[in-house]
């Protein structure tokens, strides 16, 4: 199915995208729906984008649900491992 449900988050960071160039990431769009490339009927899709760069100014991820959950845990573990004096 097309889920239609889409979650947005503001971002401030960088990504390496089209043409192997770094760009400023201002937004994340997250949704569970049909992938373009992954061999699955549905995946957790993340577009990290800078709207100012136009439609191809994005890094796209298509992750199986278990991979997406593993990524969430990895991110959380990495953040939790940060020494107290470096946390912001």
């Amino acid at each position: 199915m097309c889920t239609y449900a889409t979650v947005h988050a503001d971002m401030d960071g960088s990504a390496k995208g089209p043409g192997s160039e770094w760009f400023h990431v201002t937004a994340a769009t997250v949704y569970f729906d049909h992938p373009v490339h992954a061999m699955a009927e549905h995946t957790l899709n993340i577009d990290l984008a800078d709207a100012a760069k136009g439609p191809n100014g994005r890094v796209a991820l298509e992750l199986r649900a278990d991979s997406a959950r593993a990524l969430i845990k990895a991110i959380q573990d990495a953040l939790d491992s940060v020494p107290e004096e470096l946390r912001v």
Binding site: A27, T29, D47, A49, P55, N56, A60
Partner: peptide
Amino acid sequence: REAPGAAPDDAAAVARAQGG
């Protein structure tokens, strides 16, 4: 309208980000 001339997957991503 959202993405003239863009690759289909990029255009779909922009349209989705803007609500469809």
